[in-house]
Write a protein that binds this DNA or RNA. Sequence first.
DNA 1: TGCTAACATCATGATCATATGATAAAATAC
DNA 2: GTATTTTATCATATGATCATGATGTTAGCA
Lengths: 142, 142
Amino acid sequence: MWLSSTAQTALRAVLYIAEHATEGPVRVEDIAAAANSPRNYLSKTLHVLGREGVLQSTRGPRGGFELLVPPNELTLAQVIQPFAPITDRRCLMGRAECGGPHPCAVHGRWVGIADAIEQFFGQTTVADLLPTPIQITIPNPK
Amino acid sequence: MWLSSTAQTALRAVLYIAEHATEGPVRVEDIAAAANSPRNYLSKTLHVLGREGVLQSTRGPRGGFELLVPPNELTLAQVIQPFAPITDRRCLMGRAECGGPHPCAVHGRWVGIADAIEQFFGQTTVADLLPTPIQITIPNPK
DNA sequence: TGCTAACATCATGATCATATGATAAAATAC
DNA sequence: GTATTTTATCATATGATCATGATGTTAGCA
């Protein structure tokens, strides 16, 4: 019932890139190792996110992938969408009629769940996933 | 993100059987036509529900499929389960660590959604899906 | 017994998601 | 401009889900 393997990997990958944003472009090689995903397949996946405007890739030495959207503005929906529709509001049992003026008896509740899911992915950002060490800088007593 | 085609078909099929429960066993042929599903594939699908104790099949003339569980006790979860896990509570991005004592920052909200879905399928019954003409028996004035 | 109606099952194929290895293309550094 | 580092892409393979057609099996009935 859940996210495709590719979509999950995309999330892990983007998260890893966000975590290493300060160090410049991140190599597919490293992302693949961290996200536990085959290199070339991940490359294709990230390429898609490039087309979507989420990532930027640069080739050659010191190249790699970078975020084009700041983590706190990048929703999980934006990362997942290209690989699978997050939800649709169609009938849970796939009946065409249910979309029209004669929905089945449970259609309302069903759509309610779809709404909750959509909200979750639409409002949660990559920043929410980052380990958030409360940054207390303790001055060195020496 | 949603139910597999097989699971959706199973729901439509069971609903159709429930609707025609009074007429004795329902033939795969008829169910297939109503549920818009290939005959033999549906046969296999219904067979699985037989093994699960949801349906009973009888062969030969006047044979077909019948419900073994009354519609108001038969949850959608029981119909769907054999074809796909409804939800799991694992990390939305597939990280093993998230299950343990160090869940990611959004794991709680994520599991909340899983709970809602599980409740929906676990508490909604086939009876809830039946067209519910509010049964008012008007005594015949003649 | 033999015919027919029905489900059961088997072998096979189509399609899609995922994966892999080889090769191409681009950017940088020397 | 050549070598090196990196992403891009292509051809192919694998596995799962879904589908189809042929054949097997069981039950009822004349």
